[in-house]
């Protein structure tokens, strides 16, 4: 009895030791990634927080010291900041809705084996996603939307209409259009992969159960796309919150502040007004906004997964 007890404690001991050394190994393996993340994410964040409480203006280099919450107060009092905040939300929400609707449409289209040449079409449809944001902006502002030389202007003239200067007359809708053009392929690719994963016999069973094409899609196929849709929403909102390149090369945030979003506002504060303190305060607001969106989305995804499990 006693020896058996001793033996079992020895065994537990060995097991515990094994566990400890295993923990050590996994820590060592994860360590570099953790250090990397720490250096590249937490340090800049800490510096931004630090600057946001300092007087730091490149035009007045002698004016230093702690600013308290003055930077935050100034940013909040700035009407441009409010409009940048609203512009950001408009850009994110409108682009999200449009990319998902178009993405879903094209995914369903190219998933249908009766569509002629769908493999080639699919490749073409995916290509905008592989173009850099700045190039996308240049293509649209110069090749497409330029009121004198653009393709759209030629089209309008061909129809006997007066060409529209899209970026000047409809700056935000134009920007949403550009972003949608670039990001629809992303939504399409993710949804296409999920669509082709929906088993054929599920659709056949629904057909035998009396569902037509639309009801099969609505009740059987679409519910299978829940997770990929959430993934698309989450990733796209993160990327849409930080859109900069397309704005920089098309409208430069104008006319006025019509297309100035938070990243562009921060850029203007830092590199146009040279007010690093105010820019940092604005950046903190942007971080808070991003976190609210992220928490909101993670919650939604989590509850969705819970419900399915």
């Amino acid at each position: 009895m006693a020896t058996r007890a001793i033996r079992s404690t020895v065994k537990t001991r060995q097991r515990q030791l094994g566990k400890a050394s295993q923990g050590m190994i996994s820590f060592l393996l994860i360590g570099p990634a953790v250090v990397y993340l720490f250096v590249w994410m937490l340090v800049p964040l800490a510096m931004t927080i630090y600057y946001s409480f300092r007087n730091y203006n490149l035009i007045r280099p002698t004016f230093t010291g702690w600013a308290g919450i003055a930077n935050y107060a100034n940013v909040l009092a700035d009407p441009d900041f409010l409009s940048a905040f609203i512009n950001t939300l408009v850009l994110v929400v409108a682009s999200l809705i449009l990319t998902i609707l178009f993405g879903l449409f094209f995914a369903v289209l190219y998933n249908n084996e009766h569509v002629f040449g769908r493999n080639i079409l699919r490749t073409f449809a995916a290509s905008p996603f592989f173009i850099m944001p700045v190039v996308t902006g240049l293509i649209w502002s110069n090749l497409m939307m330029n009121p004198s030389f653009g393709l759209l202007a030629a089209l309008w003239r061909g129809l006997g209409l007066v060409p529209i200067d899209f970026l000047a007359q409809f700056p935000m809708p134009s920007l949403v259009g550009i972003v949608t053009w670039q990001w629809t392929p992303f939504a399409m690719l993710v949804l296409l992969a999920s669509l082709s994963g929906v088993p054929e016999d599920l659709k056949e069973a629904a057909g035998l159960d009396g569902a037509g094409a639309w009801k099969t899609f609505r009740h059987i196929v679409l519910p299978q796309l829940g997770r990929p849709l959430y993934a698309v929403v989450m990733l796209e909102s993160i990327f849409f919150l930080v859109i900069f390149g397309q704005i920089y090369v098309t409208t430069s945030g104008g006319p006025g502040t019509a297309t100035t979003n938070l990243p562009y506002y921060i850029y203007l504060q830092a590199f146009s007004a040279y007010n690093i303190g105010a820019a940092s305060a604005g950046a903190i607001f942007a971080v808070i906004l991003a976190n609210i969106v992220a928490i909101f989305l993670v919650r939604m995804i989590y509850s969705n997964i819970q419900e399915e499990a």
Binding site: E204, A205, I220, P223, G226
Partner: peptide
């Protein structure tokens, strides 16, 4: 019809 894979609607 009863399918080989049952084809029950998973959601």
């Amino acid at each position: 019809m009863v399918f080989q894979s049952y084809a029950l609607y998973p959601h």
